[in-house]
Design a protein around this nucleic acid. Sequence first.
DNA 1: ACATTTTCATATTGATCACTATGAAATCTG
DNA 2: CAGATTTCATAGTGATCAATATGAAAATGT
Lengths: 211, 211
Amino acid sequence: MKYSSPSAGRRPGRPLSFDREAALNAAMLLFWRHGYEATSLSELTAAMRVTPPSLYAAFGDKKQLFLEAVRRYLSGPVTAQQLIDDADTAKAAAWSLLAGSAIAFTGETTPPGCLLATGAISCSAAARDVQVELARMRGAIQDRLRDRIAGAIDMGELPCDAEPDALAGHVMAVIQGLSTLARDGASRDTLLGIARMAMAAWPPELIRNGG
Amino acid sequence: MKYSSPSAGRRPGRPLSFDREAALNAAMLLFWRHGYEATSLSELTAAMRVTPPSLYAAFGDKKQLFLEAVRRYLSGPVTAQQLIDDADTAKAAAWSLLAGSAIAFTGETTPPGCLLATGAISCSAAARDVQVELARMRGAIQDRLRDRIAGAIDMGELPCDAEPDALAGHVMAVIQGLSTLARDGASRDTLLGIARMAMAAWPPELIRNGG
DNA sequence: ACATTTTCATATTGATCACTATGAAATCTG
DNA sequence: CAGATTTCATAGTGATCAATATGAAAATGT
């Protein structure tokens, strides 16, 4: 441990000359645009306004910096888990994810597409663990959505013959595709149209008698 | 031009010591697995059984080799254009593309996923032209599918309120997602289930009176 | 055999990669 | 101020990147 944790018994010493959060944010934006392997350390240090030794002291190495950037990306402003849990119905949760993705992937102040979707798709054998970790994160979101759908079927909110795995997988597949289309230059309206079309694959919600 | 074209007036000289098609195939498989930038020339020359000077003489440079590998990938055994044109209906064309993708992305003798979908998604600024070229190829397939759908509407095969852009975009988005899911380890059956689910977004085909 | 042409194998190019060794600068404690 | 501690800036580490310079090897034509 080269750096002391900020809250723990801070020994004296030269103070940090950069804002860790701002630096991490700059790294996130670079990774978002170019992905893990295609983003070089020289680009990172330039954008983060941090020298290489400081970067390594503060974040470990490139791999840890990337994963921390992804965690930051996934934790704000709204998380997928929030969208799934807060929706009134499973179908509404799917729509939240799709529409939220369409909007987030076409922000005016952020790179097009999705860091989680396209940050480490094609990479060398040396980056395989990063690839696997991102796949795990995607799988976690998909599992949450699938569980929400399965619960909706149990509650009589969706038909008994609805398929939670295929429904959740389809939503995640479309989100992946939206990221690529956004990167290719598709507009927000185009993506929202596709998201709306994807929802047409869902079975109708069953009307539950109040009470 | 360091290499003479094989058919043109072949001057005498030392013959090629490698099968150009086999070498290109080996390069395609490597690019398929790791993408454009993450595949190094040393990996390529090793897999292709070709020395660097021979590779450059035969294929130009890494960028041209990659694009030639992608063209080879797209030209066999069945092309997207064939699938679209040979289908009985626009809806059948969409199903052919989706099911064909699910099967092609989970071949036992090929890398998982799709070279066109994931070969150059995230890359450095230096590879932007490759990224754009692949986006153009994806767009060409999407345009063909859209035109087929628009024609189907004109023929009364699909309802007048069907949306060719959103339908075609949705199919392409799902295909992109299938590629990522395949890379993440999803089975062929899982992908086919998602493909089937995606087709549920389509409007019913109108029954045409025999004529 | 000899000249010509083409490709091959070896070794290497400058550039860039992720990463770090070294020592000065900046803070706190006493 | 002096000593301890931590971070900073400079400069460079060996490794690997895509791409080539050089000259020998292998074919044909005369």
